[in-house]
Amino acid sequence: MTKLLELQGVSKTYGKNTVALSEINFSVNEGEFVSVIGPSGAGKSTLLRCINRMIDSTSGEINFDGQAVQKLNKKALRQFRTKIGMIFQHYNLVDRLTVFENVLHGRLGYKSTLAGAFGFYTDEEKRQALELLSILGLESQVYKRCDQLSGGQKQRVGIARALVQKPKLLLCDEPIASLDPNASKVIMDYLQTICKSMGITVMVNLHQVDVALKYSDRVIGISKGEVVYQGDPRFMKEEEIHHIYGSEAGELIFNLSEESHYVG
């Protein structure tokens, strides 16, 4: 398998003393489903945003698809970002616009300033957007305004917006943290399908240990800005999870035996 993303000694400090990330090393293969777990404030979101340079890392090297991410200039950065889709906990859609318009926003990175600003999209782009919406089961909501959708539907619009970019990597920042269990499952299943059948690499920040264990090929555990665990979820031990969260046995809600049963 080829490496799609590689981080070497990536650190991020705010001001002089606040360390958000320190010496992060890992790589992600093409087509892999990777979960990042860890307590709140451990640096999961910062890590994700360093990859597509929404946040500039302080030191270290990030390589994505053969490009040195930190060295990109403004124009190259824009082009680079089209290769990485991102979805968010709060969906971050423009509520007053329609589902269709929001999905087409994913194409802005490919367009000239003028065409993008006035929303001139080609028929090909529109067709792609409609196709993705039907894959995600939103064909009847195409012309609805986004503030009329449920949370699960909004997140699916967010996924469609990311996929219409034709990304190689999908970054998901707590995609199910605001959703009910039903919608959470739907979204996670879609992410799995995207990874397995479309061959898009998926990297997810998660709070739910169960979900991370069930869906991912690999789990990365982060605590206080450092990678403290990396490995296959099937062989993950309870102590290792407690090590990530700094908790004692019996303090966390998850069921290891049952989950490994699912996976196996």
Binding site: N52, M54, R78, Q79, F80, R81, T82, I84, G85, M86, F88, H90, N92, L93, V94, L97, E101, H105, G106, L108, G109, Y110, K111, T113, G116, A117, F118, G119, G158, R161, A162, Q165, L171
Partner: peptide, 21 residues
Amino acid sequence: DHGVIEALQAGGANWWQIVWQ
């Protein structure tokens, strides 16, 4: 909401596109 701007930036949109869209 800052998230909306962030989402479009992450997709490669530039300043004027974010303003108008």
